[in-house]
Design a protein around this nucleic acid. Structure first.
Lengths: 312, 312
DNA sequence: CTGAAAGCGCTAACAG
DNA sequence: CTGTTAGCGCTTTCAG
């Protein structure tokens, strides 16, 4: 592989002049430029990114930590991030975590080693206070309300949409509501927001017997319905964390000659459109794009988007 | 940020000795090691990856080119790659292509610039001969039969499973078969393999009126069924490129009071299990793991796996 | 077991 | 407009 020095030597110019034409800088004479470009082409030269990155002090990678990739939340967020990254010539490095704190800490250490320019946590097992400590080594963005922690964040404000959804269910005379949610941690922000909204609308805590966590797909929804109907044969209403999950529930009811239940999806996937379900749009794609933008900026900032309850 | 020099100075040892303890090499006295580690801890030092990579001549990133990420083929393959990469301390860089040849060429150029150690093409728009030219700059792995091209490959041999599937349909007295496939290019290897198998079993070309490409999801299947049934109201059998797609077709039939059609899925997703559909397992996760392994190896190799037709 | 010194390939003052 | 030179921070011979 030829180096910039080879180009300099062979073209009769210095490395700095070569560097200038490489980076399309001003102050290069036409003849110099022409001669150097000819040699570059002739020697099939391309600059070495590793050297460039070292010299510049950072590379063009941004790490995206995500627990897994089979829920639309992560997919849509990731797509938004990739879209923005692609436009800016940055690379997205996928960092799987499974919510493992040791793994997440290791990613933070890698940020410190300058393996990435910035880190986006789509979700996390580790404490926000730990993330905050590492912001000195590079921009860190999380995708939830950071509260009092000094961390940049891009997230959607869900409560109002949840409230609207439960009001809708109440207006439709829902008696018992199956709650199909994401993480199994009762402490997750989503879980809390949902139960709060439920509380406000129905003036009571949701029945924990009717709550199921860990929902990711059509199949999960199918199984959860099976499980809940066994406990509560008259169950006819579900609040779910994804349109596909809702579709799975519906399928279970269809397959077992039960009346189609009242359903609410989330993520505004195509299935809610096809099946004419109410859904909640958290704008994850947009969120992802914004998260990337914040990741590249140097100052602390918090952006909140509003979730939307959408009728079919 | 302290550098290795700071550690050397403060500990009273030389940079090379510090480097040795950093890399757990032999030939370091106990006292030296202890003293140096103390200073490292005290100064909160971590080595800079950019410098390390330049010195070593390569980084620990492998690029994965994929057209999009909403088909299980790519998801499962990617999961396999990530699983293997994670175990070896490598990073996976996501490279979206949309089958755009200019974009793919740019990724190859980035390989040349040493932005990645290796490149895996899960699919590609660019010619295999072009990929072959770039193998001189780093390992390149493709996920299909490379034919006579000198490119490492990891792929599944699909024809026998396709044959078995069509024989199954024939045995079940299928008259007309809707063919729901992936890419719209009639030239794609999959498309060719499917029509070949069809040809062998039925002694005729599949009806192009009943072929639809670009299938990625449940919804796509739903829509395709709608479209095909319009053309051919008696259509009662579908060969699909994914279990979810098959599930979508089934849903359409259910929603329109049509008898449940004879279906064949692919990818062995959970939906085929739940809906008791025959499916084809191409072992994509395993393929992904192997593709990564080959990407790290230095010699040319081609690994073929066998797809399996699976009855419910 | 330890250290000096020469790179890795590029960028960016700074002096002409 | 062009060239010299000093880094960026680490690894790795090669002598001690």
């Amino acid at each position: 592989m030829p180096t910039i020095r080879d180009i300099a030597r062979k073209s009769g110019y210095s490395v700095s002049t070569v560097s200038r034409v490489l980076n399309h800088q001003k102050y290069v004479s036409e003849p110099a430029k022409t001669a150097i470009e000819a040699v570059i082409k002739q020697l099939d030269y391309v600059p070495n990114s590793l050297a460039r990155d070292l010299s510049f002090g950072q590379n063009k990678n941004i790490g995206v930590v995500l627990p897994h990739n089979d829920h639309p939340y992560f997919n849509q967020l990731l797509n938004g991030i990739m879209d923005a990254a692609f436009s800016s010539g940055y690379h997205v490095v996928l960092l799987p975590s499974e919510y493992n704190q040791a793994v997440e800490l290791d990613y933070l250490e890698q940020l410190k080693r300058k393996n990435f320019t910035a880190l986006i946590f789509t979700s996390h097992g580790i404490a926000l206070s730990v993330l905050a400590e590492y912001t000195r080594y590079g921009q860190i963005v999380c995708c939830e309300d950071p509260g009092t922690h000094h961390i940049s964040a891009v997230y959607s404000h869900r409560e109002p949409a949840y409230l609207a959804a439960f009001k809708y269910l109440k207006a439709h005379k829902a008696q018992q509501i199956g709650l199909l949610l994401s993480r199994n941690l009762a402490q997750s922000p989503t879980w809390i927001a949902v139960t709060n909204a439920y509380q406000q609308v129905f003036n009571c805590q949701p029945d924990s017997e009717l709550m199921v966590g860990g929902m990711r797909s059509f199949e999960d929804g199918y199984r959860a319905a099976e499980q809940l109907v066994e406990k509560q044969p008259t169950l006819a209403c579900y609040f779910t964390n994804g349109d596909d999950i809702a579709a799975g529930v519906r399928q279970y009811h269809l397959d077992h000659q039960l009346p189609t239940p009242l359903l609410i999806g989330q993520e505004k996937q195509l299935s809610s459109f096809l099946l004419q379900l109410p859904t909640i749009d958290h704008h994850f794609f947009t969120l992802g794009q914004k998260a990337f933008e914040v990741a590249l900026s140097n100052h602390h900032q918090v952006c909140r988007f509003e979730s939307e309850f959408i009728l079919p």
